[in-house]
Design a protein around this nucleic acid. Structure first.
Length: 461
RNA sequence: GGCUCCAUCAUCUAACGGUUAGGAUCCCAGGUUUUCAUCCUGGUCACAGGGGUUCAAAUCCCCUUGGAGUCACCA
């Protein structure tokens, strides 16, 4: 049984980097028919932040990830931690330290002056005397004094830490009784039965401390997979200042969950030359031991490409639903198949699709100056008038090909090239020189509207 | 500063001692298209540097350099 977990602190939204580790954890659990747990790390924020948890669940829901069981809040597990602190106290594996804040600071500045590592001096490790009056104690764990601790990491390999370099008797419970992070993480992961810890490699150097806790409590160690960070274009850890880090912003920007997930799963992981992965393929092929060691740069060019790829392959009915979120209602539009077919070929995002759709559906309020100059020449008026005439004489116009035939007829009759009619017609219909195929546009908006738009342009000139 | 991790095209990456170092995105060019986009074809572009080990090194080892992360009564 594989049990993984995602353990964010309640920051109020799901971070794009968080989504990646969540995805990898989710995939690994589901692939093995195991469990994927969600735990909110709110021991310090202590304001039982359910809103923040909900934001994460909302984002999960949007991308289609689902955690198993109830959400665990560390803030509501305080008694469990206290129990385990007490256990260590009873077994002499942890002890009360009465050092004051001032004493600690003094010790540190002394060590700094001597260019030594800031490190607790174990003064209360074997203390048996009378504690100082009226002073709250913190609880420290007895960490090994020498030797080394090796993290067997599924991504990085064996990472050896020298105890003398990194450890001291660190605090596991504050003077107010609340437990600290490294203690809580170890206790929770162990108690919740987590077998595979997949998390950012910024946690790698915390791991020895957690191992000390595991060992003291007699828990068996999980497998660790420390996945490399995602960097911004400056090569630094991704932060809120780097633009879109909130997962839900991607919904607003018109990306599909499949594209986003596909993009993220390929950051730091690959399967040969494959670029496009369906959910099923991810589940089938993902293995955390294939994760890269090195950090990657967050560059959304490929996300755009993936998004347009998925858009092109999304059924119109689904597109229709997705577009609702972006203010486009097409359910009752009788030409929506033609419209969507032509639009989805030329948009990178749903937002772009929405804009393109409006360009077709809404009569242009102004004509682009340059387009007018380039697209409407001396002979254009005659061409458009001819076209309008033939249009009025023809009945039963429905398909793009119907309109195409009329364009052909006019062109042949007048002995001109296609460009002579295409350019001015395009300006009339769309107000500019680019856009979907004209026959499609006309089929979508119909004869009446086509004539009206031509008329509007002719009146202006 | 100590400790730890990392190092292949601009970007994501393949290669698990033997390839002209491959793919994708971006970019550029050509083709297709009434236009734009799509699509197709082609092109530019990389093993950080230096030592070893080996018949053979992008791959293993060491050093240098560079980058990142982490060092709390934060998580």
């Amino acid at each position: 049984m594989v049990v993984t977990r995602f353990a964010p602190s309640p920051t109020g939204y799901l971070h794009i980097g968080g989504l990646r580790t969540a995805l990898l954890s989710y995939l690994w659990a589901r692939k093995n028919g195991g469990k994927f747990l969600l735990r909110i790390e709110d021991t310090d924020f202590s304001r039982n932040d359910e809103a923040a948890a909900l934001a994460i669940v909302e984002a999960f829901k949007w991308v289609g990830l689902e955690h198993d069981g109830a959400i665990e809040y560390q803030s509501s597990r305080l008694s469990i931690y206290q129990e385990h602190v007490q256990k260590l106290l009873d077994e002499g594996k942890a002890y009360k330290c009465y050092m004051s804040r001032e004493e600690l600071d003094a010790l540190r500045s002394e060590q700094m002056e001597r260019k030594e590592r800031a490190k607790y001096d174990n003064r209360y490790r074997d203390f048996t005397g009378t504690p100082p009056e009226g002073r709250d104690a913190v609880i420290r764990i007895k960490a090994p004094l020498e030797g080394s601790i090796t993290v067997h990491d599924g991504v990085k390999g064996d990472v050896v830490f020298n105890v003398a370099d990194i450890l001291d008797d660190f605090v596991i419970a504050r003077s107010d009784g609340t437990p600290t992070y490294n203690f809580v993480v170890a206790v929770d992961d162990a108690l919740m039965g987590v077998t595979d810890v997949i998390r950012g490699d910024d946690h790698l150097s915390n791991t020895p401390k957690q191992i000390v806790v595991y060992n003291a409590l007699g828990f068996t160690l999980p497998k660790f997979f420390h996945v490399p960070m995602i960097h911004n274009s400056e090569g630094k850890k991704l932060s809120k200042r780097d633009g879109a880090t909130d997962v839900m912003m991607y919904k607003t920007m018109g990306y599909t969950p499949q594209a986003l997930l596909n993009f993220l799963v390929r950051l730091g992981w690959s399967h040969g030359d494959q670029e496009v992965f369906s959910r099923t393929e991810m589940l089938e092929l993902f293995d955390p031991s294939d994760i890269n060691r090195s950090a990657s740069v967050y560059n959304t060019d490929k996300l755009d490409w993936l998004n347009s790829h998925y858009l092109k392959n999304t059924p119109n009915s689904v597109l229709c639903e997705l577009l609702e979120f972006h203010g486009i209602t097409l359910v009752s539009h009788d030409k929506r198949e033609i419209l969507l077919d032509t639009i989805k070929e030329r948009a990178k995002t749903l937002v772009e699709m929405a804009a393109l759709i409006n360009e077709v559906l809404v009569r242009p309020i102004a004509f682009d100056e340059a387009a007018l100059k380039k697209g409407f020449k001396e002979d254009s008026r005659a061409v458009l008038e001819n076209f309008a005439t033939v249009l009025k004489e023809t009945s039963e116009l429905h398909l793009p090909s119907d309109y195409h035939h009329i364009m052909e007829k006019v062109v042949t009759d007048m002995g001109i090239g296609f460009g002579k009619i295409g350019q001015p017609l395009r300006v009339a219909l769309l107000g500019k020189l680019s856009g979907p195929g004209l026959d499609s546009v006309m089929a979508i908006i119909g004869v009446e509207e086509t004539l009206a738009r031509i008329d509007a342009l002719l009146k202006l000139k």
